[in-house]
Design a protein around this nucleic acid. Structure first.
Lengths: 181, 181
DNA sequence: GTTCCCATGTAACCCGTTACATGATTTT
DNA sequence: AAAATCATGTAACGGGTTACATGGGAAC
């Protein structure tokens, strides 16, 4: 038996199961769908596709184009669909991986004048506010599209998180302001 | 000029600035301090240390031990401290990187019986609850240690996030239950 | 007195980021 | 007509994950 499929591979298979595509197109799908919580760089997409074809989970077909470079369009095989389904039916989920640079700055910011931290937090608040607004719009739009419920719930996660970050940033600013006095 | 330091390198320098250490020990520091928001694998620690010494930001010294393998203890140089300070004083912070497998499962879970998603969400809720409890204890403990304010605020972030996740999971369960009917 | 864990480190491989390449189409 | 963008893909390199190695001490 071959190595178990990475989550990235499953995502690509699941997207291709909705619609066959070539690398470039598929990378665009990723960016418009799951990239907020599972980004996949283009180069990774291009590396996975031949691997998945090799494993029999995809079938690739060369397609000539007149107005653009030729491309290789991939379609999920029955085995590919089975692999996605098996993965989805397992109630375990991949451990979260985080890299939060803001917290690094805050953690080591103890012996920094709080002026700099103030700037940092202000940026962060603004970013969070923008993200909250954007995700709010998205969730509202998806609310009127019943079959998009699951997509909407993932967007809702992002919205709740952005709101939480806003509130937290204010809390932090108050604590640090209080320490000044 | 050499390549700019990675955030990982800065973290290692900042930790070594508090106390000199060898690779193994330093990896342990990471795990007990910043790993929740900036994990650094041991092998990465071992690769960075000689590089940072090469760059003059660390000085390493061989230390013989009787009851354990010999080790190489690293101390931050003045240049190293300057690099950390310069990084901290810049109000920009590294972009967040996320990988959230739960959301992948939810996103593609549309055509799955909601029994499986129920299991997934229940696990998630339990994990979030445990994390919330743990981080609550940590923040409360740190509240009585004034110089640990910044550490406490990063823990508070984790707490708020766990609480948000709990509430979101309940929201999701309700929505999905509502759709059954 | 084996089995497990601790302290120290190495090695191999995969993932991710950034930059490059190239021809068509759209914009200015 | 030059510049930006799109559609397609490749290449190089550094970061991250997992597994291996090894000898001493602790646990059972």
């Amino acid at each position: 038996m071959s190595a178990p499929l990475s989550t990235t591979a499953i995502v690509l298979l699941a997207l291709l199961a909705r619609r066959p595509a070539a690398g470039h197109e598929l990378a665009a799908f990723v960016d418009r769908s799951v990239a907020r919580f599972w980004p996949i760089p283009r180069s990774q997409v291009y590396r996975e596709l031949p691997r998945l074809e090799e494993a029999g989970l995809l079938r690739g077909e060369h397609v000539a184009q007149a107005d653009a470079p030729d491309k290789r369009v991939y379609t999920v095989t029955a085995e590919g669909r089975a692999a996605v389904r098996a993965w989805l039916e397992d109630p375990a989920y991949p451990a979260e991986r985080v890299r939060n640079g803001l917290l690094v700055k805050l953690f080591f910011g103890a012996d920094l004048g709080s002026g700099v931290l103030g700037d940092v937090l202000e940026r962060f608040r603004k970013e969070a506010a923008a993200r909250a607004q954007e995700l709010d719009a998205i969730t509202q739009r998806l609310a009127s599209v019943p079959p998009a419920t699951h997509q909407r719930l993932t967007a809702l996660y992002g919205l709740r998180r952005a709101q939480m970050e806003l509130a937290w940033a204010e809390e932090v600013e108050q604590v640090l302001a209080g320490r000044e006095a």
